[in-house]
Design a protein around this nucleic acid. Structure first.
Lengths: 126, 126
DNA sequence: TGGGGTACTTACCTCTTGGTAAGTCACCCA
DNA sequence: TGGGTGACTTACCAAGAGGTAAGTACCCCA
C-alpha cells in the first residue's frame, strides 16, 4: 500500500506531479522505460545500479496504480513480466524532459565550479 | 546541515533536478516566489497553509545553498528579510512549468474519474 | 545433486523527514 | 509591565522511506 491515499488534495500542479515522481528510483524507472520502450524486471534491476528488489517492485506497483506504467504478465515458466509506459506515462516523461535538461545543465555548472576550486587550490601559495 | 553532501553523483538530469526540488514545500516556495517576485518570511508562511516555521527556514536555507533563492537582510528593527528567485531559480521554475501543467491535467482527470464513480454509485440498484 | 535464473514477498531495522512546542532578542505600543 | 511583531533556533518525537537478508516456487543445465 506504500502511500495509500495518494496525498491529496493538492495545492497546485507541481505538488501533484511531484507526488507521483518522488521516490528514490521513480525518475530513473521512467527514464529507463522511455529509453527502451519495454523492459523486464531483471533488466530494470540491472539498469538501475543499487536498487533493491523490494524497492523496484514497490515503485513499479505505485507507478502502475498511478496509471503511468503498464504491467504485462506472460503465463510462462520461468515467468516473464514486461513493463512499459502507458500514454499518461509518456506525457509525464515529456513534461519531465525540460526538468531533466535543467538538471544536466546544473550538473555541468557544479562540475565546472569544482574544477575552478581545484585549480584555485592548486595555485602556488604566495 | 539537513542534507549536507547533496547526494551526488547523479545518474541523470532528472535525478539532479529532483534532488533540489524534493522536500514537502520546495515546489510551493518556488511557485510563491515566482508569483510575487519578492516575499518576506511571514508572507511566505501565510502563503503556504500548514508549513511550520522550522521547515520554512530549513527549505529556504537549502534553496539558498543551491543558488536558487536570494536572501536579503535589512538591518532594521524589527528585522526584515526578503526572499526572491535568482536567475537559476527562474530557469528552474521555467523547467518546472510543463510538469505543473501535467499535474493540473492529472488532478482534473482524477476528479472526473471520481465524479464518474460517484455517478455510477448513485445509479438505482437493479 | 547442486547451482543458477525469474519475479517476486516478508520480516526486521535504521536513518531521514517533518511536526510540535518552546525559547531568543530587540524593539514598539498601551 | 506586559503583550505583540519579526525571523528565526533548538530539543524532542513520530511516521515512513528505504536497505538487508532470507524465503518461495518452478524450471533448466551440468
Amino acid at each position: 500500500m506504500a502511500k495509500a491515499p495518494r496525498n491529496g488534495p493538492y495545492i497546485c500542479g507541481i505538488d501533484a506531479a511531484l507526488d507521483v515522481v518522488s521516490g528514490k528510483w521513480k525518475g530513473l524507472i521512467l527514464w529507463e522505460l522511455d529509453e527502451h520502450g519495454m523492459r523486464r524486471f531483471a533488466e530494470l534491476r540491472r539498469g538501475l545500479p543499487g536498487v533493491s528488489e523490494k524497492m523496484l517492485t514497490q515503485h513499479l506497483r505505485e507507478l502502475e496504480a498511478d496509471g503511468l506504467v503498464h504491467r504485462q504478465v506472460h503465463a510462462e515458466v520461468p515467468p516473464r513480466v514486461e513493463y512499459s509506459l502507458t500514454a499518461h506515462g509518456r506525457t509525464l516523461n515529456a513534461a519531465l524532459a525540460p526538468l531533466g535538461a535543467w538538471g544536466v545543465a546544473r550538473i555541468r555548472r557544479e562540475r565546472s565550479e569544482l574544477v575552478e576550486h581545484r585549480d584555485a587550490a592548486a595555485l602556488p601559495r604566495p
